[in-house]
Design a protein around this nucleic acid. Structure first.
Lengths: 156, 156
DNA sequence: GTTGAAAAGTGCTGCGA
DNA sequence: TCGCAGCACTTTTCAAC
C-alpha cells in the first residue's frame, strides 16, 4: 500500500487540503472543493494519493480527557540502568495504558514519557506500581502539567 | 451547546463507541452498530449526546510529520524570570508555529513545550531567534527526541 | 491532472414500540 | 429510550477533456 518515496513534494493544493482537514476531519470534500475552487473528484484523488504515500496516517476522534475523568497529565523523565535496555523498556511501557507517548532521547534522560491519569492517587499507583518496578529502569523524574495552554498540530 | 455537567457517567456502550472512533474516526456508524449489536440510530444518538456534553472535541486528520519534511521533535523546559509572566509567555509562544504543545507545570521548569521542526538548522533558528529572545524567558533546556516509540490516546 | 455526473454508501430525522 | 425506514447528503467511480 505505502509507496517508498521518503519525501514527496506536496504542491500548494495538497498542503491546503491537509491544513483544512488537520483542524477538522469531518469537513466534506465538496465543501473543501468549493473553497479551493476545484472539483470534488480532485480532492478525492489527492487524498487517495497522500494516503498511499503514507503522508496521512488516519483520523482520530478527539475527546476531552477531563470530561471522562482523566484530569492529570504528567511527563516522566526516565533513567535506564543501561542504554541497551531500551527496546525492552519500550515493550514494558507499552503495556502501561496510561503512557500515551514515549520518546528515546538525548539529554539527561534516556527516555521521556507522557502519561495521562484520572487523579493523583491513580498517578501515584502508575508511578509506584506500574513503572518504577520495571526491569532496567533506574529512576524517574516527574513533571506534572497544571494546564495545557497550547495543543495543536504542525502548520505546513 | 455544551451542557454544564462537569462529569457525566458514560455507560459501557458510550465507552466502546468512543474507543473505536478514537482509533479511526472514519469508521461508519453502521459498522460500529453491527459490532456492538445495536442500531445505527442509537450510535447517532449517543454521539450527539456526547458532543453536546463536550466530551467529544472534534476530529483530526493525522499526518506523518516526517513524510512532509518535519523530522525533529524536541521538548523544551522553560525557565521564566517571574512566574507572573506566564500568560504573556503563552501568548508569545502561540505565535511560534513550531510549538505544538505548551504546559504550565510543577517541578524545575516553569513551562514545558513540545516543538516540531524540519531539521537541525530549523530547530536552531526556532530556539535562538524565536524563543530565547522572548520577554520573560530566562533560559531553556532542550531534549531532542530521536525516536517516538509510542503515540496513542488514552484507553477508557 | 481535472472535470462533472451517476452510482453506492452513509448520516440524519421522525414515527412507532 | 431504542429501533426501523425513508430522505438528504457525501464519497467514490469513471468516461471524457
Amino acid at each position: 500500500m505505502e509507496k517508498n518515496y521518503s519525501n514527496y513534494d506536496l504542491d500548494n493544493l495538497d498542503v491546503q487540503i491537509l491544513s483544512i482537514l488537520m483542524e477538522d476531519a469531518s469537513i466534506p470534500y465538496t465543501e473543501i472543493a468549493k473553497k479551493l475552487i476545484v472539483s470534488g473528484g480532485t480532492i478525492h484523488v489527492r487524498m487517495k494519493k497522500m494516503e498511499e504515500l503514507g503522508i496521512i496516517r488516519g483520523s482520530n476522534l478527539i475527546i476531552n480527557p477531563q470530561k471522562v475523568g482523566f484530569d492529570i497529565t504528567a511527563f516522566l523523565g526516565i533513567y535506564l540502568e543501561k542504554g541497551s535496555q531500551y527496546s525492552d523498556a519500550v515493550e514494558q511501557l507499552r503495556q502501561v495504558k496510561e503512557v500515551v507517548e514515549l520518546h528515546y532521547c538525548t539529554g539527561q534522560y534516556s527516555m521521556f514519557a507522557k502519561i495521562i491519569c484520572k487523579d493523583t492517587s491513580h498517578l501515584r499507583k502508575v508511578l509506584n506500581e506500574d513503572i518504577q518496578g520495571l526491569k532496567g529502569i533506574q529512576r524517574t523524574e516527574t513533571i506534572i502539567s497544571l494546564e495545557e495552554s497550547i495543543k495543536r498540530q504542525i502548520t505546513l
